[in-house]
């Protein structure tokens, strides 16, 4: 029980800012700037959310369009990335082929290059291939990441080779082994990769690559709404609360399904 209490204490440190943002989103303007700041609200209101809707309705592009863009881009990149990364990780962990050692090391080194580091050459590259102002400028570089490959590869290292050999002896093709043996076993790992990838793409504005208003993603619109000055503080809190919801839902969903697979499948470990 002691440890849980310890955890609870730490949890408070984390939850406090989140709680503060949520509380701020329902504070009326008179309480938002009260000093010292209060951790409770006397007169809760939905004004901030209403004015967010009002501000949004003045924009030329409907809200659904931004949402659609965001879901489309995050969805395609996440699914595509998990496919590519798990295939690559499977080969790197369980196959032998030329240059394998080199590629394995390159995977780790590639984690160093955050998108911001490569953004200038990335832009030049995208403009040369004519992908500026398309979804692809965000989707394709997101698929060329490598932390997921590294994570999946480490996970696959713990999977016994005998299991795969058994599959081969039973006459399964390489693709059957990958889809029917490796992927179900890797589920906790690729669920984790989905969480990481989805969040990072969901959070990107992509404004350096996408200029057309009707192709922009939700974060781009929301951040431009919320950063328009002190008067928008309440709106900003509302925006932050709304933006947090989808990743949390994804996390809860994947957490539950991870626990389920581990409990229901015979192969733990």
């Amino acid at each position: 029980m002691m440890v849980v209490l310890f955890l609870l204490l730490l949890g408070i440190f984390i939850a406090l800012p989140i709680y503060y943002v949520i509380i701020s989103s329902v504070k009326p303007i008179s309480e938002l700037f009260y000093f010292p700041p209060r951790f409770y609200v006397l007169d809760p209101t939905t004004d901030n959310f209403l004015s967010l809707i009002k501000l949004q309705s003045q924009s030329e592009v409907p809200f659904e369009r931004y949402l659609f863009n965001s879901v489309l881009v995050s969805g395609i990149s996440t699914v595509g990335y998990v496919m590519l990364a798990s295939m690559a990780a499977y080969a790197l962990a369980k196959h032998k082929f030329p240059l394998k050692g080199f590629i394995t090391q390159a995977v780790v080194i590639a984690i160093l290059f955050r998108p911001e580091v490569t953004s200038v050459p990335q832009y030049i590259l995208m403009s040369k291939v004519g992908m500026i102002d398309t979804y692809w400028a965000v989707i394709l570089p997101a698929m060329a990441g490598s932390f997921g490959v590294f994570l999946l590869q480490q996970f696959l290292d713990t999977v016994p080779n005998e299991l795969i050999e058994a599959g081969r002896i039973d006459g399964a093709s390489e693709y059957a082994i990958y889809f029917r043996l490796i992927m179900p076993m890797l589920k906790p790992a690729w669920m984790t990769v989905i969480i990481f990838t989805f969040i990072s793409i969901w959070n990107t504005t992509g404004v350096q690559f996408i200029y057309s208003e009707n192709l922009k993603m939700l974060p781009a619109m929301l951040s431009s709404l919320s950063t328009a000055g002190i008067a928008r503080t309440g709106v900003a809190a509302a925006v932050a609360v709304l933006m947090m919801i989808p990743p949390v839902v994804i996390f809860l969903f994947s957490q539950n399904s991870i626990v389920e697979t581990m409990a229901h499948s015979g192969m733990k470990g």
């Binding site: 080969a91 032998k96 030329p98 390159a106 290059f113 490569t118 394709l140 060329a144 390489e174």
Partner: peptide, 19 residues
């Protein structure tokens, strides 16, 4: 060995082109 290489290939192409 060829199958292994085919599995890395899609990701590798992505890395070469965009990274």
């Amino acid at each position: 060995s060829r199958a292994g290489f085919l599995f890395v290939l899609p990701w590798l192409i992505g890395i070469i082109l965009f990274f």
